[in-house]
Design a protein around this nucleic acid. Structure first.
Length: 560
RNA sequence: UGGCCUAUGGUGUAAUUGGCAACACAGCUGGUUUUGGUCCAGUCGUUCUAGGUUCGAGUCCUAGUAGGCCAACCA
């Protein structure tokens, strides 16, 4: 960790305290328990890093456990995607588990509870039961079926399991306390009838256990020491403990549930349900759309696992409400990409520039691949009489703050020569068509001549027109215009979708990029970090902009 | 007319468990630079309120205020 002296988050403090109070290190065990009903997002990354980070810290095993108790929503596709994402982040689970592995054990325990008079079959509609449940401020009332005999309950539950009953006719309920101030303790449902095929158990079962009944018992079966979940489960802890009380052997380790606040990221939503809605309503092009805050979306966007983990570690873990600015995530992307991304030149908004006094056909200039990495080496880039520069890099007239090219002014072409703008041509509407300039042949970069050492304020990137490689470039902006789109009581989050979150343009790139492979990450100098999208084919290169460079000039312009 | 949780700079998280409120990001100034990038230096600014305990309170107690969560055969 850090040399200065590490600071622990509150979960780590709890573990340290448990270690002082009798837990042995060998007893420590954690789990990451996703439901396979959607793709993992940046919020899950926090949970993954927390649990697997604890595993690394204490050299303790961490299970990957799929919480697959609801066959109506869960699919193998999601299981595969989740495993891929966890692996991509760089973590290794001890064993791969499924709550469905425990269906028989759970059933046996449920029978035990019935025999002890602690569970009963209720045969009312969900509406009737909801009515009896009361409200947070009013006690509930007992179900008319609450006092069925053990034999009757056993017979009915066995029938439920056999498939004798239709969905919605019977449920198994824990007999706890309809007057509890905790709504979850008012005889919660343990099993419901569901005649649906399960992605792993197929049609073996037609009753499925509910989350509360399943989760703590699964932790107990796996001997998980610390079961960490988000704050909305805090009220479930009492029930988690109640269910555990019914089955635990005091000689075995008893799991402990603790809750932390989920991380909210600005300008997006971090909820599987809402992300699914974006996918289903085609607001984005799938779960791995680079605008999505999913792990797969961030991967496709060009984020590195390191940048995500660094982000997660700096935002930490706590119990209070939070809204983390997405710019912090972008900072970590830049920080890592700055070290590893080769520099290349590409022009996204081309303006033709002609060097009037350039006599040669072409020449190949030496260019440094990465000034942050001495081992990155050099490459050659072609230079010729006609180049593209960015439209924003030329103005006929501009004040002293503008370091770029203006008529009569000089700039250096990166890795090339110092040029001077002499004139420009325009169409009938006044749009600039091309810039005509002259160059100083003695000013070639790296030549060591007096002229080459001259300081000019501006340096522009460029690309030789006849050598340029065309590519589709996808520029992304925030998916939502509001920093917290799903917290408005009077407005749906879909109303805040940014209509300009994706802009597709054609870029003109230096020819070395012809051989770029899917997933390659580069810095287009002075523009940002880009990566090669999987849509790339042998005929067409496709780049995603991961994140732009920090842009002081944009800020200066904004102020004016 | 309930229960549970939370409150530290603009944002996020710390504070050796009662002992000088710190780190990162963002902002602002300046320096270096063949990327208006990177890097370097400097700077701004914080314990929700009111009482109490204490030599000493961000930390403990009481009350208040504000925010979040709790009534799916979802997880």
């Amino acid at each position: 960790m850090n040399e200065v002296g590490e600071s622990l988050n509150f979960i780590e403090h709890i573990v340290e305290e448990d270690l002082r109070n009798g837990y042995t290190k060998a007893e420590l065990r954690f789990r990451f328990p996703p439901e396979p009903n959607g793709y993992l997002h940046i919020g899950h990354a926090s949970s993954i890093c927390l649990n697997f980070g604890l595993g690394l810290r204490y050299n303790a095993p961490v299970n990957l456990r799929f919480d697959d108790t609801n066959p109506a929503k869960e699919e193998q596709e999601y299981v595969d995607a989740i495993k891929k994402d966890v692996e991509w982040l760089g973590y290794t689970w001890d064993t791969e588990r499924y709550a469905s592995d425990y269906f028989q054990q759970l059933y046996d325990w449920a029978v035990l509870l019935i025999k002890e008079g602690k569970a009963y079959v209720d045969s009312q509609s969900s509406e009737e039961m909801a009515k009896q449940k009361g409200t947070p401020t009013e006690a509930g009332i007992d179900s008319p079926f609450r006092n069925r005999t053990v034999e009757e309950n056993l017979t009915l539950f066995e029938g439920m399991r056999r498939g004798d009953y239709e969905e919605g006719t019977h449920v198994l309920r824990a007999k706890i306390d309809m007057k509890s101030s905790n709504m979850l303790m008012r005889d919660p449902i343990m099993y419901r009838v569901l005649h649906k095929s399960h992605h792993r158990t197929n049609t073996d079962w037609c009753i499925y256990p509910m989350y509360d009944w399943t989760h703590g018992e699964s932790d107990y079966i796996e001997q998980v020491s610390h079961s960490l979940c988000t704050l909305e489960f805090a009220m479930h802890r009492e029930l988690y403990d109640w269910f555990l009380d019914q089955v635990t052997d005091p000689k075995k380790l008893r799991p402990k549930q603790r809750e932390f606040a989920r991380r909210n990221l600005s300008h997006t939503v971090v909820s599987k349900r809402k992300l699914l809605q974006l996918v289903e309503q085609n607001a984005v092009n799938g779960w791995d759309d680079p605008r999505m805050p999913t792990i797969s979306g961030l991967r496709r966007r060009g984020f590195t696992p390191e940048s995500i983990k660094n982000f997660v570690n700096t935002i930490g873990i706590a119990k209070r409400e939070n809204l983390i600015d997405v710019s912090l995530l972008e900072f970590h992307a830049r920080e890592h990409l700055n070290k590893i991304a080769p520099r290349v030149m590409g022009v996204l908004n081309p303006l033709k520039l002609v060097i009037l006094n350039y006599e040669g056909e072409e020449e190949w200039l030496e260019a440094e691949n990465n000034p942050e990495d001495e081992t990155a080496g050099f490459r050659k880039v072609p230079f010729s009489r006609e180049l593209y520069i960015e439209q924003e890099d030329f103005k006929e007239e501009a004040n002293r703050k503008f370091f770029r090219l203006k008529l009569g002014g000089e700039v250096r072409l990166k890795n090339g020569y110092i040029i001077k703008a002499e004139s420009c041509t325009k169409d009938t509407e006044g749009n600039i068509l091309e810039v005509l300039c002259t160059y100083d042949p003695k000013s070639k970069s790296g030549s060591g001549t007096e002229e080459s050492l001259r300081k000019v304020k501006g340096t522009l990137h460029w690309v030789s027109i006849k050598h340029a490689v065309e590519a589709e470039v996808r520029l992304y902006d925030r998916l939502f215009t509001d920093e917290s789109p799903d917290t408005h009581k009077d407005k749906d989050f879909m109303e805040f979708i940014n209509p300009e979150s994706l802009k597709v343009i054609t870029g003109y790139l230096e020819p070395s990029l012809k051989s770029a492979q899917v997933g390659d990450r580069v810095q287009f100098q002075r523009l940002g970090y880009f990566c090669v999208d999987p849509d790339t084919t042998s005929e067409k290169l496709v780049f995603n902009r991961t994140v732009g460079l920090r842009d002081v000039w944009a800020k200066i312009q904004q102020r004016d």
